[in-house]
Design a binder for these strands. Structure first.
Lengths: 224, 224
DNA sequence: CTACTATTCAATTAATTACTTGAATAGTAG
DNA sequence: CTACTATTCAAGTAATTAATTGAATAGTAG
């Protein structure tokens, strides 16, 4: 094989990873998996896809090594293969945010209207946690919280937030986070809290990005 | 628009970037552009694609903002839009290297056979340069060298290496680099030098990765 | 103004992809 | 062993993508 055939073959393999990331449904599945391992049935439910379609997409992700599986009885559990996959997804999202005008338009139209304050960077949140100066609020579903969360975070899903305000120290600022930097739930949580007169901001990233950057996490059991 | 429609629309935009990276030819064009700006005609020549096909692929890269253009007379010059695009390409390549078995097989079959020593990390090379302990050899074509290179690097294209050995200090180890971590030319340069009794190793990355990580560069003029 | 150069556009063809639907497979409870 | 559950497979359909080919467009030299 010549040098240029080798190079083309190598880039074709790289392109397989790009191809795996070229469908919106697969990206969404990756974001769900970034919170912790899930079964096919669970993924179909949260994503709104049919089980067969979900399975097809997961096969493609598995074939390029972005996810891996384990079996337990009838169920097959999928998980992200490594932190490098989270970092790739993050890099792709950041490039899209910076260079795709439609991303900026969508974010401005649907997110910035809810919270136009600068989000809190992860290292700043870590320091303020250590100083005991903030309440960290995780608004993901309980099973995602159980799979891993920011140390000291309280888990109140968004739908229950208004009826659980008494769990939040009124003297402290709340920093809310969710599955990723564009998860609407974190924005809505901040909006709700501010409407109730609380000081609230968002964390810059979601839980997977926090974890991938090596910051401490609590609650992880089957995620090495 | 509902929250789930918003999320799907947002991920569709992210998927557009993935789609741009899902073709081997576009990835190769990105690697060429990572060395410095090129015209459509030049890119068609080095990639072996027709001009029309090259132009089509460049349109797709431009539409998601991975590359940008400037005109000079008849010619349109394309360039990488930002260092974040280089970092995305690097993240994609690293995920493929780690998780796609065929990548490992190709690399082992065609590269490791030429150089199975550990490559030199960028920060180590920087330190050794400052200590004056190595000769840095850039084996890319002269126009890519002119567009930017590692400070102090000598430019000897591979085809001319054997007839220019006298340009290399026999007392110093040579560290060779090229367009990227899998560029065959760097491997062949090391192989050639070792056959001539010289101490030689490869830099871990290519020039674009060196530059994207903020290390000092020489020779950049039209690249901000 | 004409002829040439460089690039992009548009239509066509072949290949690939996404989803659906029904069948097949593997594991388990009774 | 049978019936059920969870998942994957395979075939079909519609949409999308990649490359080719020829036309169109924009800029320039003479």
């Amino acid at each position: 094989m010549s040098s240029s055939n080798f190079k083309h073959d190598l880039f074709s393999q790289f392109a397989r990873v790009g191809k795996a990331l070229s469908n919106a449904n697969r990206l969404e599945l990756l974001e769900f998996l970034a919170q912790g391992e899930r079964s096919v049935d669970e993924l179909a439910t949260v994503s709104g896809l049919t089980v067969a379609n979900t399975s097809q997409h997961l096969q493609q992700l598995r074939q390029v090594g972005l996810v891996s599986t384990r079996k337990e009885g009838l169920k097959v559990y999928y998980r992200i293969s490594g932190e490098d996959v989270i970092e790739l997804f993050q890099a792709l999202r950041q490039v899209a945010e910076r260079h795709v005008a439609e991303v900026e338009r969508l974010v401005n139209t649907f997110l910035t209207v809810k919270d136009d304050l600068e989000p809190v960077p992860a290292d700043e949140l870590l320091q303020r946690c250590r100083d005991g100066l903030v309440t960290v609020l995780d608004v993901r579903p309980p099973e995602e919280y159980a799979a891993g969360h920011v140390p000291g975070a309280i888990n109140i899903p968004l739908a229950e937030l208004e009826s659980h305000l008494d769990e939040l120290d009124p003297q402290q600022e709340v920093v809310a986070y969710c599955r990723g930097p564009h998860c609407v739930l974190a924005f809505e949580a901040v909006e709700t809290l501010r409407r109730k007169g609380r000081k609230a901001r968002r964390l810059e990233d979601g839980y997977p990005e926090w974890k991938a950057s090596g910051l401490p996490v609590e609650g992880t059991s089957n995620n090495e």
